[in-house]
Design a protein around this nucleic acid. Structure first.
Lengths: 349, 349
DNA sequence: AGGCAAAACTTAATCGATTAAGCTAATTAT
DNA sequence: ATAATTAGCTTAATCGATTAAGTTTTGCCT
């Protein structure tokens, strides 16, 4: 019987015998009409079930949706369970929310099962940790702002840290103890997938290509500085930063005979380092006596536990804040480099 | 000079000397035009920098945006760092993505700094863990679907677990060891804020009001069944499920003289239980010998560590999946009750 | 070759708002 | 008292698509 079409501004205008412009002004520009009328309109709107101007129509007309999209590197499922990505997102969300914007989450290219489509509803885009050759920008509407985080796009404002310097810093700290058998566990540094020990056949990605690669450079610099032959330092690669994928590789490392087993593991992420720690504890390997472990990121999980993880903290939340502020035009679009901080925990004091 | 207005479908139509309908069809209904023409259109579109139909206009015209909004209970900042909420979101995201939808994140009412506004762009809403008297629905467009998760709205499809039964189950397990001094740590069960020991002055929320309250009921049932006087069981309340807020309260509990200190702590969440575990480890309190600990949720962090947390797992990811499938109409809108599972870890074997 | 159906396009109305420009009536200035 | 300004409201164009209905072209059948 009654018609279930949603009530529009026009319907409301007709019922109240005023123009649509006036209704619109009642919601958007209070100074354009008498307070009495505005009051009446808002009251009647509520009574008749009109919940304010339709966002779709409004965004079409004004050209702005108050939505900012974050394009993640991985699938949403992965990203939401990754502490670093989550912290980053929470920084973004905090700033967006403070300025009346909302957050749209997009999976990385190659992870979306459908073409973007609805994504270009956003007023601006924050691309997070994409691959260097990433084509994210290619199908983004040209007019809208894009901020790149943790990777570079030519001529695009970016937010990042100096990964090489940071990893150099922690490796330098760890090497002060002159480990007998240092080893490195890295994330996705080989051209083709490799879950395990990296051999010469596995070609490494180019030096500056990804964050992982940059961090490996830092480790290497510190090792070279200590006159360690980096070719003698076992390098392990892991394809995904999750406990499930890390575990078997790390088990393989730890299950070597004690005299071959590393006594220092420089890990490219806290997730890896924490997995090492868990597996070491399960095996009764003493940390740091038998094995020193360092991480990278400074996620909460590594600090709110005993023993605390020795790591280098990057301000992921801050990254998110800065990126969001840039997108909203609160700070100038620029190349922002954030600081990192050594966290001396118990796993490599 | 050149005009920076974004290129529209109409512009493209003019350049190619075809009608706008044809362009639109080239993007949306391939069967409506000859393959040759379609090919030409897509190619020229790419060449001229037309990235496909504008999402704002399209969503206005079609009435659908392919965006689903999740209304969280807390601020986005909190939710994104909470493992349970993140797992839930990742379940939602997984299903949405598989069906070409995207995810818009909205902070809970009272956490947004601005009125919703752009939120009603979504095709459907999933409200997560709201307070029982929550007014979320009130300013939601009436026509759109709403699914409630972990709380109830009259006449609204819901997804939840039987919190009381689940907490009864784990408490029952823990009580088999006939603890001398059991105690309970709960989350937000008092009328007004209370961070610490709950005394008679602190009125409790009504029985069925929140999840926390439901879980407390389960603990109590199990205690009563063991003929324990529940008024003698210390009850502690915590206002926020974070390490920072939990710590001082838990320190207070653990720093009591050993003969007064609880030998069993039934915790309402894994976050609380893990904080207990960390602080106990720091103090050299042996778990489970001196202190047994149980959690609730089954988050990854509690299982991927040594000792593993004894807890009851709820399938948060599954909750998200089911909620998303309902919203998308893949499964009927209904009241869904998911199963829980006892995880026998090392903290209360 | 004529008739008819299907294929390939076009026309034009529409989605639900915003906003510049215009119009009256009321107020202020001279 | 009259002109000038302002307040308060309306008119109508516009944002950029989609899609039902209509038109022309092509292909097929007898």
């Amino acid at each position: 019987m009654t018609d279930y079409r949603q009530m529009t501004l026009k319907d409301l205008a007709q019922k109240l015998c005023v123009s649509t412009a006036t209704i619109s002004n009642a919601f958007n520009r209070p100074d354009q009409l008498s307070p009495a009328l505005r009051e009446r309109i808002l009251k009647e709107a509520r009574r008749l079930g009109y919940h304010g101007p339709d966002a779709k129509a409004r965004s079409l007309r004004t050209g702005r949706s108050r939505i900012i999209a974050v394009i993640l590197a991985e699938s949403l499922t992965y990203s939401l369970n990754d502490a670093v990505a989550s912290e980053f997102l929470s920084g973004v969300a905090e700033v967006l929310d403070a300025h009346g914007h909302t957050l749209l989450l997009l999976p990385g290219r190659g992870h979306a099962s459908q073409p973007p489509g609805s994504a270009n509803i956003a007023d601006g885009f924050i691309a997070y940790g994409q691959m260097p050759n990433s084509k994210v920008i290619d199908d983004l509407p040209a007019q809208r702002t894009l901020v790149a985080v943790d990777f570079d796009i030519e001529g695009c404002p970016t937010v990042h840290i100096d990964d090489t310097a940071a990893s150099y810093k922690i490796a330098q700290h760890a090497l002060r103890y002159l480990p007998k058998r240092p080893a490195i566990i890295n994330l996705r540094i080989t051209q083709k997938a490799c879950n395990g020990r990296v051999t010469p056949e596995h070609t490494l990605l180019p030096n500056t290509s990804t964050i992982s690669r940059a961090r490996l450079e830092g480790f290497h610099s510190a090792l070279i500085e200590q006159a360690v032959d980096i070719d003698q330092v076992p390098l392990w690669n892991i394809e995904e930063n999750t406990f499930e994928v890390c575990s078997p590789v790390i088990a393989e490392i730890l299950d070597q005979p004690p005299e071959q087993r590393p006594d220092l593991l420089l890990c490219m992420s806290d997730r890896i380092a924490l997995t090492v720690l868990t597996l070491a504890e399960q095996r009764g390997i003493r940390v740091p006596e038998d094995l020193r472990i360092t991480g990278f990121d400074g996620i909460a999980e590594g600090q709110y536990r005993a023993p605390r993880l020795t790591t280098v903290r990057q301000d992921s939340v801050g990254k998110g804040r800065v990126a969001a502020q840039m997108i909203l035009g609160r700070i100038p679009l620029a190349q922002q480099l954030l600081e990192t901080e050594l966290l001396l925990g118990d796993t490599c004091p």
